[in-house]
Nucleic acid binder design. Sequence first.
DNA 1: TTAGATGCAAATCATTTGCAATGAA
DNA 2: TTCATTGCAAATGATTTGCATCTAA
Lengths: 145, 145
Amino acid sequence: MRMRSIRNIECYIEGRPVTAQRKLLLSLIKKAGGHISAKELYRRASRKNESISLATVYRTLQLFKELGLVEERRLGQLYCHYEIKDLAEHQHLVCRSCGKVTEFESLPIRKLVEKVGRDHGFNISKIELYMEGNCQQCNRDQDRP
Amino acid sequence: MRMRSIRNIECYIEGRPVTAQRKLLLSLIKKAGGHISAKELYRRASRKNESISLATVYRTLQLFKELGLVEERRLGQLYCHYEIKDLAEHQHLVCRSCGKVTEFESLPIRKLVEKVGRDHGFNISKIELYMEGNCQQCNRDQDRP
DNA sequence: TTAGATGCAAATCATTTGCAATGAA
DNA sequence: TTCATTGCAAATGATTTGCATCTAA
């Protein structure tokens, strides 16, 4: 998983004010490795800026989505993440018991998507493949308790 | 999309009381073609039973999930559906502009899933492939406004 | 008779919004 | 100076829960 090098926020926000909150939030998302939940982002932001509000976190996330900087991802019923866009396109695998999120890339899925699009006359712009199960570790732990 | 013939609720609820609400809700889900949102289910149920409460709808849906009768499905940010389980396994395609939900089956995806499971040592128990885009109709409408 | 289900209202949780104060340009 | 952003508190919408009442078995 290689990340596009992300430049200063100034490159993305055209015209709009570059505020301390926006800089902080973008840097925290980057520091988190590119994906994080709104709540956790708020928690970390609060450590750096006592007075930042959850509303600002949501509004900023909303803005980043509009700018195409970040993407919202709901992973099953378990999580809602925001991730930096333009990570290599990837999908998610979530462990039911320990919650670990594994990302993986899948080339074959592209073909599959093209075919489905053709078959149904859809112009597909977004695809999410989500899988849930038990990871190796949790399987082992279950075997010998 | 072929549906398993669904028998009386008595076959599924072991030990627990079979109430009028539970019978009503199950029949409404069936009548809806096997998938419906909680709110819409509540709306339809209210027509048949003035006093049924939303809480009962949610509790019943929860029960049906536990019994393996129904499955919760979040489709992107747009919808949350509950569907009868054991429809042929299928995936969803949602139109961004008109909201139409198209279901489709995909055989190749099984192989893909097996491979991912093997590669990551996961024992996969659930998979969701979700795609969003514009349907043929909406594409046409956009071309000539 | 009785454990479990229901209706209602209140509680939660995530997310959004109105508004007056603030800050970047 | 000015318009967008912010913090705060209140609003919203989905879902859950406490509790007294009801009901299937």
